[in-house]
Nucleic acid binder design. Structure first.
Lengths: 153, 153
DNA sequence: TTTAGCCTTGTATAATTATTCACAATTCTG
DNA sequence: CAGAATTGTGAATAATTATACAAGGCTAAA
């Protein structure tokens, strides 16, 4: 019943996106959200996935929610988001990132919080993220940061 | 059976001290450690304490452990637009306004219609508003208008 | 002091998460 | 390619955490 490695990566990437873009209160809920995204797994598998991904559960006023480990170490975490990025293009003042359908919000949130140090903000639609560099002079660095997580030279 | 506020503070302080100085894997273990410190409580109380303290549970190689300050907190919802604005940053050509999650649309609408006279338009995502100045020369004025509603000098 | 309204807590239990077991798909080895 | 080892998974269940409820204790008001 073993799945391809690629499939697991994809599922992990989507789990991370979902968790960083919306409030997930328990694994049963996550099972349903994943089903909406065309991924069918059970709670047991998610328990294992979340452990592997280092995703923690943090109490809030509305109930405990899952959070991607900010102080965590995982550098491979980047790869999961990378799976959702389709292309990166830029002009003199902006960087445009194309993502899988419906995953722009999640990608933007992740990039915003962890990767794009030279960006003052991102704006996400459905499959497009616009990243705004701190200055037109730092566009190059922003692009490099993106290429870095994409594993592109 | 109500305890003095002081006692609860003390217990909370000790809990924080314990979980930041050693690895605690579950609440039953914490019950025992606290008993060693002269504090007798049940697992149920610890569950409530940990929620109040915002202590998260994060998976590691050796098993899930409790972490203080594991990840970001939620900002409390407030009424006024100014309170929904988190930050204002700009570069040579745009002004980026960070808002509370999900409040960008509302903030943008308000700013657009009432404050930003030197902006030719705004674009809002989930927690980010981009304001486009009439000219690069009027960015300063736009920023000042924003600072004004924020009460910043 | 008496009463009323909160708090805080423990017990019992519900809800949620982690794990054990069995099994099938994949990968490895020869 | 055959057989063995490995891996990912679901079902069932164990382990852990959260909560409903009841019981006391504290404070304030009369």
């Amino acid at each position: 019943m073993s799945k391809k490695l690629e499939d697991i990566h994809k599922r992990h990437a989507i789990i991370k996106s979902i968790i960083s873009s919306q409030e997930i209160y328990n694994q049963t809920q996550l099972v349903k959200v994943l089903k909406h995204n065309g991924i069918k797994v059970t709670q047991a598998t998610l328990s294992r996935d979340l452990t592997e991904l280092g995703v923690g559960r943090v109490p809030t006023a509305k109930g405990a929610t899952y959070k991607i480990n900010a102080m965590g170490e995982e550098p491979s975490l980047k790869l999961h988001v990378a799976d959702e990025i389709v292309s990166v293009i830029s002009n003199e003042s902006l960087v445009v990132i194309k993502t899988l359908q419906g995953r722009a919000q999640g990608v933007a949130l992740f990039l915003d919080k962890s990767i794009l140090t030279e960006s003052i903000g991102t704006l996400a639609g459905d499959d497009t993220v616009i990243a705004i560099p701190r200055s037109t002079k730092t566009i190059e660095k922003t692009i490099n940061q993106l290429k870095n997580i994409l594993g592109i030279k």
